Computed example of a mutant assay.
Amino acid sequence: MKTSLTSLDGLDLLSSAVIILDDESRVTYANAAAENLLESSFKTLASRKLEELFLNGDGLAEIFREAVEHRFADKRLDLTLERIGREPLQVHVIVTALDNRDMPVLIELRENVQQLKLDREERLLDQSQANKELIRNLAHEIKNPLGGIRGAAQLLEFELPERQLKELREYTQVIIKEADRLQTLVDRLLAPHRRPHIVGDVNIHEVCERVRSLIVAEFPNGLAIKRDYDLSVPEFRGDKEQLIQAVLNITHNAAQALSERIGTGDALLTFQTRVARQVTLAKVRYRLALDLHIIDNGPGIPPEIQDRIFYPLVSGRDGGSGLGLTLAQTFVQQHMGVIECESRPGYTDFRILIPLP
C-alpha cells in the first residue's frame, strides 16, 4: 500500500504528535501537534534524521532499525527525550512499522502527563523543603540583631538631651517601628514551624464557609462568591485552623487581585469541592483525595512569576509580603497534600489536594 502525503492531512487533527520516517530514518512528515511538541516547523524538521532531533536519540534509532526490519508491528515505551537548550520531553512513544517502502515507520509521541505531574510535585516538595530551611536560618539570623537595633534606638532616645529630643525622636521612632515591622515578618516566617499541629475532624465545607464569611465582611460589595460543593466529601483528620489559614491566604490574594472587577461589580470567586480518585501525591498513591478549587475571574498571575509564586517573598502585587502562598503550601503539605495553580487572564484556579480516609 502506497500512501501519499496529501492523504495524511487528517493527522493534523490529532492531539498527539505524529512523525513519519523514510527508510533512512529521515523525517518525511510531521503533523501540527509534532511541530508544537518539538517547537519546530515541518520545514525545519524535514529530512533530518530521527536521532538528530534529540541528544539521546540513539535509542530511538535502534528501535527504528528494528521497525524497518519488521521485528515488531508496533512497540510502546516511555522515554525522556533530551534537547539542546530546552526542557526534556517526558513522552509515551508508539513506534509502528508500516507496509510502505517510502514511509516505513510511523512514530507517535504523547506527553506523559502523569510523569510530568510527578516530576512537578517532586520539584515542589524539594523547593518547599529548601524554603523551610532557608526561612528558618534567615529568620534566626535576622531576629537576633533586630533586638539589638531596637534596643539601641530606644536607649539613644532615652539618652537624647531634651533640646534634641523633639528634633531627633522622629528618626529613632522610624528605627523602632521598622524593627517591629521586621520582627512581625520574622514571626510570620517562623509561625508554621513553632505552632503545634492540632489534629481533629475537619469538614472542608465548614472551612470554606468560615473563609467566605471573612471575605464577605472585608469585600461586602461587588464580589460574588459561588459555592459548588460536593456534600459527599467525607471528613478527615487535620488541623482545621491551619487549613482555614491556607484557604484564607489564597482567597484573600484572589479578592485583592479582583479589585478592578469589584469596582465594576462583576468579580466572581468560586469554591468547588470534589472527591478525586486514585491520586498520587509525593509518590504515594491514595484511593481518595479532597479536590478543592478556589477559582477567580481576575487578571491572572503574571507569567514571569507563575513558576515562583510559592517561593517566600515573591508577590504579584505592590505591597504584598509574598508570604501568603508560601504559608498556605506549608500548611497543606503538613496534611500530606499539595497546592497546584493554573492561571491565565480571566481565570485563575488554585487546586488543593489532600488525602482522604
Rank of each mutant, 00 (worst) to 15 (best):
L290T: 09
S16E: 14
I84E: 15
H335N: 07
H92F: 03
D349L: 12
R86N: 12
L21T: 06
I149S: 07
E342Y: 14
D12N: 15
T28K: 15
L155Q: 10
L21G: 03
P312Q: 10
T273D: 03
A34N: 11
V275F: 01
I309E: 05
L189S: 04
D23F: 03
Q129Y: 14
S16C: 05
G322R: 10
D99G: 01
H140I: 09
E39Y: 00
R48D: 01
T251M: 11
L11D: 07
V216N: 01
E178H: 04
G316I: 06
R274S: 04
L53S: 07
S47K: 10
P88K: 06
E108G: 04
N112V: 10
S16K: 13
L89P: 03
G151T: 11
R150K: 15
L356G: 01
Y229W: 12
N100K: 02
L292C: 01
A97P: 00
R181G: 00
K143L: 15
R110Y: 03
R308K: 13
P161W: 09
A97F: 03
L292M: 11
E241A: 13
S15T: 15
D9L: 09
Q329H: 08
A224T: 09
A254G: 06
G263K: 12
L185E: 13
F331W: 13
R261S: 12
F350S: 03
F219L: 06
D22P: 02
R65Y: 05
V279T: 13
D23C: 00
E260Y: 09
G200H: 01
E35L: 03
R26S: 11
S15Y: 07
V284S: 01
E52M: 07
E170W: 06
L327T: 14
Q306Y: 02
I339Q: 11
L38V: 12
T80E: 11
L258H: 08
E66H: 10
F350W: 12
S25D: 08
V216Y: 02
L182V: 14
A255N: 12
R210F: 02
F158H: 09
S41N: 10
Q306I: 15
D22S: 04
A246N: 06
T3N: 07
Q272K: 15
K43H: 13
E39W: 00
R110G: 00
K240V: 05
S7K: 03
G148T: 08
T172Q: 02
T326H: 06
A33Y: 10
P302Q: 11
I19Y: 05
Y29N: 04
V68A: 05
L134E: 10
I204Q: 05
A46W: 05
